[in-house]
Design a protein around this nucleic acid. Sequence first.
DNA 1: TTGAAAGCGTTACCAT
DNA 2: ATGGTAACGCTTTCAA
Lengths: 345, 345
Amino acid sequence: MSKGVNLKELSKKLNLSQTTVSRALNGYPEVSAETRRRVSEMAEELGYAPNSQARRLATGRSMAIGHVIPRSIHEMMNPIFLEFIAGAGETYSKHGYDMIISVVEDDHEEDAYRQIASRKKADGVIVHGPTSDERRHKLLKKLNLPFVVHGRIPGAEEETSWIDMNNRRAFERATNLLLDLGHTRIALLNGLEHMDFAKRRRRGFEEALRARGHKPDQALMRSSDMTEPFGCENAMEMLKGDNPPTAFLVSSMISAIGVARAVGQCGLKTGKDVSIITHDDALSFLPNSGEIPIFTCTRSSVRFAGQKAAELLLAMISEPGSKPTSLHLDAELIIGQSTGPAPAR
Amino acid sequence: MSKGVNLKELSKKLNLSQTTVSRALNGYPEVSAETRRRVSEMAEELGYAPNSQARRLATGRSMAIGHVIPRSIHEMMNPIFLEFIAGAGETYSKHGYDMIISVVEDDHEEDAYRQIASRKKADGVIVHGPTSDERRHKLLKKLNLPFVVHGRIPGAEEETSWIDMNNRRAFERATNLLLDLGHTRIALLNGLEHMDFAKRRRRGFEEALRARGHKPDQALMRSSDMTEPFGCENAMEMLKGDNPPTAFLVSSMISAIGVARAVGQCGLKTGKDVSIITHDDALSFLPNSGEIPIFTCTRSSVRFAGQKAAELLLAMISEPGSKPTSLHLDAELIIGQSTGPAPAR
DNA sequence: TTGAAAGCGTTACCAT
DNA sequence: ATGGTAACGCTTTCAA
C-alpha cells in the first residue's frame, strides 16, 4: 500500500530537515553518503514520491512537452503522426518529461500555443506539419516558447530548430530509378501540396524529369490527403485514360496500396505492367520489409525522427540561448517487388 | 505582448484582494457584477492566465488524464489507438483537461500507473487493450486512481467502468451474412487472441457457425497482429491450399487490404470468387464509405468510443464514489462490394 | 554537512 | 461582497 507520504512526513520520520531530504533524493553532492542511504531507504519504505505539481511550481519548469494537433493534421496524417509521437514519447519518458497532447479545432491552434505559454503548461513544443506559408514559428518566438519543427519552414531554416528528411532528394532518386528502368510516363500521387514536405517531393520529381529531358505532365500529378482510395481512384483513372503511365511515384504506403489495388483491378500486374515506388515512413502496422519488400520505396523512419526531435528539444530547453540546430535525415532507396523495366510498347 | 502577469500583480492593479480577483475569474456567485466586469477587463488587458501548476497544487486536482501505452500496444494497434486518442482528446479539451501520454516499455507499465498516482500526475486514466488475464484494474483500484476501460475486462464487467463495442454480436452477424450467401468455408483472420476483443470476435464467429450446423475449422483460423502482410500471407496460403475458403472474416481493414491483395494475386476477384467482411474502425485515413463501400464491414467508430470514454471518466472524477457505468456500442453491418454469393463449386 | 525560512502562484477557509 | 491568511508540497537561498 503506497500511502502517499509527502516530504514533510518523510523528513519528520528521519529526523532530518526537508531540505536535507530533498537534497539527498535529488542527488546533490553535499549530502553525506550515510544520510543519503538512510533517506533513500526510508523513502522507498514509505513509498515516497514527489508531487509533480509542487515540484513544478517550485522549479518553474513544467517538465512537459506539448504537441498541438489541429484536427486537420490528424485527419490527414493520422498514422504517421502517431508513429512520430511514439518515438518522441520514448525520449520524453527517458528524461522524466511528460508529453501533453492537445487536440484542437483548426482555428484554435494559436490559442492552444498561447495557453501553453501563458499557463506554463509545457516547457516546449513540437511543431507538426509545416506548410508553405507557415506562421506558427513567429508566434512561438514571440511567446518565448522553445520549439522544434518536424519538417522545415521555408525561409526560416536558419533561425529555427528542425528535423526533416531529404524529401526532394528522395523523390529525385526514386524518379531517376524509374527513368533508368525505361519509364517515361511517370505519375506522381503526392500529399497535399500546401505542406512543405509535399512541395519538396514534387520538386525532386520534376527536377529529375527535367534533368533527363522529360517534361512533367500535369495530367499525371495529383495531390490530396494520402488515403487508400485516393491512390486507387486516381491510379484507376489514369490507367484507363489514353496514354496511361507505366509507373507511379507515391507519397505514402497507404495510397500505394490503393494504387496496387487499382492496378490489380485493371487486370495488370504490379512490378511488371506497372511500377510503383512509394515513400515508406516505416509504420509498424504496415511493414514493408522481408528479404524483398513488397514495395520499392524511399524509406525514412518517422519514429526515429520523433526520437531525435524530442532530443533536440530537450537539449534546447536545458541550454537556453543555444543556437538553432537541425537534423537532415537521408531516406534510403530500397528495391522491392513493385518495380521493373518499363513494358515494351 | 502577453507579459505573464500573475494574480498578485493583477489584483494590485485593481486594488482588490487576490481572493476577490480569483473568485471573479472563476465564476463564484458572491462577486458583484461590476467587480467581475472590471476584473475580467483588466485580466484581458494584462493578458493574465493562471499558472496551471499553482492551481493544480492548490486544488489538488491535476486536471489531466493519463494514457499509458506500452510499446506492445502501440506497435499492434497503432492507428486504432490514435483515432481513439483523438476522440478522447477532443473531449478533454472541451472540459479543460490535459491529456498526457506515457509511452513505456512493456514491463514498466505498472510503474507508470504507480507514478501517475503517487506523483499526482493525472486525475484518472484510460486502460487500453484489456487482455484475458487482465490485472491492471486491480492495481488501479488499489491506487485509488479512477479509470475507464476501452474494452471489457472479463469477470470484472460489473465493478469497472468501460466502453466497448459488441464484438461477439458483430462477428456473429457478419458470419451469418456469409452463411446466408451460401459460404460454408469461411476463414477467420483475427487479432491477437489474448486480447479480450479478439476472443469475443472469435466466439461470435464460432457460435454462428455452430448454430447453423457447421463445425469451425481450425485450419481456417489465424490470429496475429493486424498488419497488412498478415492478411495477405495467410489468405494466400489458404487460397492455395486444398479446399480453400470462399470467404474471409477479418478483424481490421488493414489486414483486409492484405487479403484483397492476396485474392488479386491468385487471379481471383474479390466479391465474386472470394468474399471478405472486415471490421472497420472508421479510421480517417482508410475511409470505407461512398455509395457502396469497398468492403462489406462491421463498423464502429473508435473515435466516438474515445469521446465517450473520456466523458465517462470525467464524470467519474467529478462525482467520486459513483457507481461504475458502462457503454455498449453496437457495430453496424454495412454491405459493400466485397461480398457476394458463394461461387458454385 | 545540515537546517530555517522564504518563496512558487493559486485556491479556500474564516472573518468582516 | 470583500479581504486576510493559511495551506498546497516542493526547491532554494542564506546561515550556521
